[in-house]
């Protein structure tokens, strides 16, 4: 009933158009009826209930390349600054595989420098011990949240929050070789464009390796062999910033 009625009206509306054309007026001031504005907090029913369609940032089946830098938050002796590179393949919008490479810059931290100079303590040169100089990790990445944020009336940026976990190999300086370690982290990306995003992440890696404090590292003596150090468990925290580009 309603259908055929509508069909008639469709024709009617079309026929009336010619007559009405030119009579349209006013309406430069927008008046949204309050009745028409959102009042319900419930969601429409769709099966399955997908929170977003036609994503601006579509990652599924695409590679993502990232570059950035950061610091180790709990590194006492060595230069905490590092450079990071990431390559991620997104199997779906949620699941991905991430390969990350972190390279620490040479040198000592300010505390390490003071220790080497013997300020207040007997001189202790951490640079004579094997220290982490790179970390390569293969991770599973899960994008748990995709949303958007509006900072100004016309500016909306998409964002995502992800977690990652995997295994990695920590490369040690002074021929210390590689140590297997666990790697995990959480992060957030804020997209400037559908392909380009600012990446911020907090990562943790743990490994068992040589402990510089198990030997007296006198700056005047040659470096001891790597296997002469006692072994200990290290838990490092990395804070990184960077840019990612979806290829």
């Amino acid at each position: 009933m309603a259908k055929s009625y509508h069909k008639l009206i469709l024709s009617y509306a079309l026929c009336c158009f010619s007559a009405l054309f030119g009579i349209q007026a006013e309406a430069d001031v927008i008046e949204f009826s309050v009745d028409e504005l959102a009042a319900e907090t419930v969601l429409p029913v769709f099966e399955p209930s997908v929170s977003v369609r036609d994503r601006i940032v579509a990652k599924s089946g695409r590679f993502e390349l990232g570059l950035g830098g950061g610091i180790s938050l709990n590194e006492p002796f060595y230069n905490p600054q590092n450079l990071v590179g990431n390559l991620t393949y997104h199997m779906t919008e949620v699941h991905g595989i991430n390969l990350s490479y972190t390279h620490w810059l040479d040198g000592l931290s300010s505390y390490g420098t003071q220790l080497r100079a013997g300020q207040g303590f007997p001189a202790f040169d951490p640079s004579l011990a094997p220290s982490p100089e790179s970390l390569i990790a293969l991770n599973y990445q899960n994008t748990a949240y995709y949303g958007k944020i509006s900072l100004t009336k016309q500016t909306v940026m998409n964002l995502s929050i992800y977690g990652l976990a995997g295994l990695g190999a920590v490369g040690l300086s002074r021929e210390g070789g590689y140590k297997i370690g666990a790697h995990a982290g959480v992060g957030q990306k804020v997209y400037f464009t559908p392909s380009l995003a600012f990446r911020f992440d907090l990562r943790f890696f743990a490994y068992r390796g040589p402990d510089p404090t198990t030997l007296d590292l006198d700056p005047a003596l040659p470096p001891p062999p790597p296997d002469s150090f006692g072994q200990d468990f290290f838990f490092n925290t990395l804070l990184n910033l960077g840019l990612v580009y979806i290829l």
Binding site: F21, G22, Q24, A25, A27, D28, I30, F32, E36, L37, A38, L43, P44, F46, S49, V50, S51, V52, R53, D54, R55, I56, K148, S150, K153, Q154, V156
Partner: peptide, 28 residues
């Protein structure tokens, strides 16, 4: 008491039914 989000091409479930046309007519 309302929020304004400009439409940029992606559809969100919680926005379905809340879109508002803000264009103007092109004729008098």
């Amino acid at each position: 008491g309302f929020e304004y989000w400009p439409f940029r091409g992606e559809y969100w479930l919680d926005e379905i039914g809340n879109y508002h046309y803000v264009g103007t007519q092109s004729c008098d």
